[in-house]
């Protein structure tokens, strides 16, 4: 199409401002429709997940090799330490076995209701999607595994985070150190309930603890059963004071170096039963509330009775 040079120059000058406007539009769109952006990113991550695991594999091998070399260097000292530790552990094993026996007997006597064994899947972390303002990892999963949004991620030592998005071949796990992570926890020695709030630093803070029952340095922090899908008693870490009056949790899980995660599905472990006597009201649609079925007046009763 023949266009005059002036017109073409004017068009050329308009391209960049138009694109900047579109970029502002993209920012607003990302804020307005988070789901769309997240879906797009998860689809891209799904496509790239095999490539990422290709990158992760030689790294794991290299780390294993260097770890081996270091082990060989201080084999002697390690052996001595292990022997001592083994002795102490053997003692503790006896104690634990005796306690487990006793616990079993007591539970048998009390007709204890056994806990449901949760189902879990394990997966390899293929990518750390932590940015300047988020702490999250991407986990490779199969299409037929049942990883659901809200699943609990644990590594060998403790709580790592929660599943926030699930794609076909990968799932995103928001770490407990992320600034949007808030979890109810119990402090094991002082029996206080508190909230563990991530702030993008490696040590999440403890907030909302009772002022007359402050956290004790070094005590264990476990999850609290306050919210559904997160059972009580999962190990989280221990309390540490970075400065007086500012308790933080030192996570038990190796969060800076997450390798393999187990995703537990506790979603419907404890479902509250229907309470008789309490009338479940339907959500008010259109502003009118209707009575439940048993209280509804029958039209034919009014006519014939």
């Amino acid at each position: 199409m023949p266009v005059s040079i002036q017109f073409r120059q004017a068009l050329g000058k308009l391209v960049l401002p138009a694109l900047i406007l579109v970029a502002c539009g993209v920012i607003l769109l990302g804020k307005a429709d988070r789901a769309l952006v997240e879906r797009l990113r998860m689809q891209t991550a799904d496509l790239l997940a095999p490539a990422y695991s290709l990158v992760a594999w030689p790294q794991a091998k290299l780390r294993w090799l260097s770890g081996n070399l270091q082990d060989i260097r201080n084999l002697e000292a390690e052996n001595i330490r292990l022997r001592a530790e083994n002795e102490s552990l053997r003692h503790w094993y006896d104690v634990a076995a005796a306690l487990a026996d006793e616990n079993g007997t007591l539970k048998a006597n009390l007709h204890w209701i056994p806990d449901n064994a949760p189902t879990f899947v394990s997966g390899r972390v293929v990518r750390d999607t932590s940015g300047l303002y988020a702490r999250a990892v991407l986990l490779a999963i199969n299409a037929d595994t049942s990883v659901r949004k809200g699943g609990i991620a644990l590594d060998g030592a403790g709580l790592v985070g929660r599943v926030t998005e699930v794609g076909k071949r990968s799932a995103r796990v928001l770490l407990i150190t992320d600034s949007s992570s808030r979890l109810p926890v119990t402090l094991e020695s002082s029996h206080a309930a508190a909230i563990m709030a991530g702030d993008n630093s490696p040590l999440p803070r403890i907030i909302f603890y009772p002022q007359d029952n402050v956290p004790i340095e070094g005590e264990r922090v476990v999850t609290n059963g306050e919210i559904e899908s997160l059972p009580a008693g999962l190990p989280v870490g221990h309390v540490h004071y970075v400065r007086p009056g500012q308790p933080v949790v030192v996570p038990a899980a190796a969060l800076d170096h997450v390798d393999i995660l187990r995703i537990f599905d506790y979603a419907d472990s404890v479902a509250p039963p229907d309470a008789p006597g309490r009338v479940p009201l339907p959500p008010p649609v259109g502003g009118t509330l209707s009575l439940p079925a048993q209280f509804q007046p029958h039209a034919d009763q009014g006519l014939h009775g």
């Binding site: 970029a23 993209v26 920012i27 990302g30 300047l132 988020a134």
Partner: peptide
């Protein structure tokens, strides 16, 4: 613009910020 969108899709920050910076 296209490269900015690509960078935004691959990073998990707020959408569009990287794009705007590049432009």
């Amino acid at each position: 613009f296209v490269l900015g969108l690509w960078a935004d899709v691959l990073s998990f920050g707020p959408a569009g910020v990287m794009l705007l910076m590049m432009l």
